[in-house]
Design a protein around this nucleic acid. Structure first.
Length: 639
RNA sequence: GCCCAUGUAGCUCAGUAGGUAGAGCGCAUCCUUGGUAAGGAUGAGGUCACCAGUUCGAUUCUGGUCGUGGGCUCCA
């Protein structure tokens, strides 16, 4: 065996001694920098201290790269665990991975963490990083590792090792702390400079609610101070945009605990926005060949047995209510009702596709702990539609639905979105063949449209796979938006048919879809997207008239009358306040346009225009102003 | 549902080592008539989430219930 090996780095190759450390290799090749914290050996992540035994390709990983930051965060979780043990002693540690934008570690201990503990732990982490302890890797056989952790009473680690298929496992030591870990890690604890512990949470061991609940600490770490500060600012910004806070401030909606959690009260301003959304939604549906329908909120339990909801969805449904001798249930979905309309007469292939659309309010029992503002509620209105199509037109129909959804969300200002394809879940109805057919038609449609998508395995609904479109908002967060589901099962369960060209009965395929999601959730997303400063066409109050003094109220009202008749949503602030105060309040209300009117404006029948956030635009004839905003409203301009 | 935190005026929050409470904003009235982000004065608002218990006395302590927040599990 030769005692040198060939190592190629960035396309150059070096012949070096067998067993050389990765870090020394980089130094030999002149590529070493302090910011390099790990390497990839033939594409596999590895420590800088890893000895190289074979010919290989080496790729340095910089702490500033996404992979480098992930390693940093993972190491931060180890350091946090070490700090927790230093402070609290008898601790069982479970898992501590890096996650998007941070890391966490799950602990099992007697002491209940308090928010004050976080700063103590942070201080101890700071001390550990100042000691600059090396991360040292050792490889043990599974048995050795089990004995090792069992002796330390680390039951969770033992359980994890037992599930590992390889014969050996790696452990990492820094100072007095040892953890089971695949690695790699930063070379030493001193590399961790910019971090912060963020929150406490309960988390089930292995994410299973039958298991013990552990205590989780979330934190984050970044390569640079700027990165950390940027992220903390992002969290602040998210708080500022919180739809629950803005909903209260702008008087858009509320949730009343006496009425019940998860039930939304749409206040006048929120309801006005909803009306604008609904009007637009209906118009666009009619344009695209949908027929609007309306259906009741309850139905006999037998219907839900036929549909499969009774067996597969009951835990999400409110309990049945006794009516005469039968039982009725509040609907969690609109599909059976639309099916009944379809079945009210014999359908010919000439009628297909039939597209029924309804803003259908549904009720779902959600566990108390999951309710969240407008985003997770117990009663909501789906912007629902069910399409009955012939199998040969399925893909075409899916494509037009996807296009429709894209049109809707971009009109509302969501130019970026991510697409996911959710496949068969554990609990499902129907045959595997039909599931495959349905899944394939969804993916084929996306591919024909050249839309990139990711697969979400097992995330489909019980009756079919779906395409989820997640909106990306102004600060790059994802929100659940449109979903499109293909369903072979309900048509069979309800024996839905059409008469084909051949005079025989055939089975249509159903598409369930929403192009916004639910009005509640979509509204919440809109509030966060715009931080309450809605585009002109959506604003509940589009124009606020501010008379300079009481003498000008009459003129202000005449301006209001003219614009109101032109279809503009307008209010006059006739309070006994100074101009400055009225302007300030209108700005805080996020009204898009403020019209200041006084003596000057009365003289030449004009208005002084002030645009939200931009300030005074100067005087303008009233007609000109009206023309301008009418144009913007009809084009649904977002500015 | 589970873990932790939390619930005081319409809103944001102080406070009471157990003796039924306060600020700012908002609201009402009056004064002020002011040209692009807060003019002034006076006043009205609270069963201190709810139900039990301890106590001479509970908003404060204990237990429970409900709600809310951050997570877990689960979803439009």
């Amino acid at each position: 065996m030769e005692n040198t090996i060939e190592i190629s780095i960035n396309g150059k190759s070096f012949r070096l001694n067998r067993g050389i450390k990765a870090s020394d290799t980089l130094k030999e090749s002149g590529l070493y920098k302090d910011s390099i914290i790990a390497v990839k050996v033939n594409g596999n992540l590895s420590d800088l201290s890893e000895p190289l035994e074979e010919d290989c390709t080496l790729e340095p990983i910089d702490i500033n790269s996404p992979e480098g930051e992930e390693i940093l965060r993972h190491s931060a979780s180890h350091i946090m665990a070490q700090a927790v043990i230093h402070i609290f002693g008898d601790v069982k540690y479970a898992i501590g991975p890096a996650i998007e934008d941070g890391f966490y570690y799950d602990f099992d201990l007697e002491h209940k963490f308090t928010p004050e503990d976080l700063s103590k732990i942070e201080e101890e982490m700071q001390r550990i990083t100042s000691e600059d302890l090396r991360f040292e890797k050792r490889v043990l056989s599974k048995d050795e590792a089990i004995t090792f952790f069992a002796e330390k009473g680390q039951d969770y680690k033992v359980e994890i090792i037992k599930d590992i298929v390889e014969d050996s496992v790696a452990i990492y030591t820094q100072g007095d702390f040892v953890d089971l870990c695949r690695g790699p890690h930063i070379p030493s604890t001193g590399y961790l400079k910019n971090f912060k512990l963020l929150s406490l949470a309960g988390a089930y061991w292995r994410g299973d609610e039958r298991n013990k609940m552990l205590q989780r600490i979330y934190g984050t770490a970044f390569a640079t101070k700027e990165g950390l500060e940027g992220y903390l600012n992002f969290l602040e910004e998210a708080k500022r945009r919180d739809h629950r806070r803005i909903g209260k401030e702008l008087d858009l909606f509320s949730i009343n605990e006496d009425l019940g959690p998860g039930l939304i009260l749409w206040h006048p301003k929120g309801a006005m926005i909803r009306k604008v959304i609904e009007d637009f939604w209906r118009e666009e549906h009619v344009k695209r060949g949908y027929q609007l329908v309306n259906t009741p909120h309850i139905a006999r339990v037998e219907v839900w047995k036929t549909s499969g909801h009774w067996d597969f969805y009951r835990e999400n449904m409110f309990s049945p209510m006794e009516v005469d001798k039968g039982a009725y249930m509040v609907k969690p979905m609109n599909c059976p009702f639309h099916i009944m309309i379809y079945k009210s007469q014999t359908r010919s292939y000439r009628e297909l596709p039939i597209r029924y659309a309804e803003l259908g309010t549904v009720y779902r029992y959600e566990k108390a702990g999951v309710l969240h503002g407008l985003l997770r509620v117990r009663g909501f209105t789906q912007d629902d539609a069910h399409l009955f199509v012939q199998p040969e037109y399925l893909e075409e129909e899916i494509m037009s639905v996807v296009e429709f959804a894209r049109f809707m969300i971009t009109t509302f200002g969501f130019d970026k979105y991510n697409v996911y394809l959710s496949t068969r879940p554990e609990k499902y109805v129907g045959t595997i063949e039909n599931w495959e057919l349905a899944t394939n038609s969804l993916s084929a449609a996306l591919e024909t449209l050249k839309i990139d998508y990711k697969v979400d395995p097992g995330e489909g609904v019980f009756y079919g796979p779906k395409i989820d479109i997640k909106l990306v908002d102004a600060i790059r967060r994802e929100w659940q938006g449109p979903t499109i589901q293909v369903d072979f099962n309900l048509p069979e369960r309800f024996d839905v048919t059409y008469v084909g060209q051949d005079g025989r009965e055939h089975r249509p395929i159903m598409i369930h879809r929403v192009v916004l999601g639910s009005l509640e959730r979509f509204f919440g997303t809109l509030i966060e997207q715009y931080a309450g400063a809605f585009p002109l066409w959506l604003s509940p109050v589009q124009v606020k008239v501010v008379p300079v003094t009481n003498k000008h109220i009459e003129y202000a009202n005449s301006v209001r009358k003219i614009l109101l008749e032109a279809g503009i949503r307008i209010e006059v602030d006739d309070r006994n306040e100074k101009v400055n105060a009225k302007i300030r309040d209108a700005e805080l209300e996020k009204v898009p346009y403020i019209l200041v009117v006084g003596d000057k404006e009365i003289l030449d029948h004009s208005v002084s225009v002030r645009k939200r956030k931009e300030g005074n635009l100067g005087p303008m004839p009233l007609d000109t102003f009206l023309e301008m905003i009418r144009g913007k409203i009809s084009r649904k301009v977002i500015d």
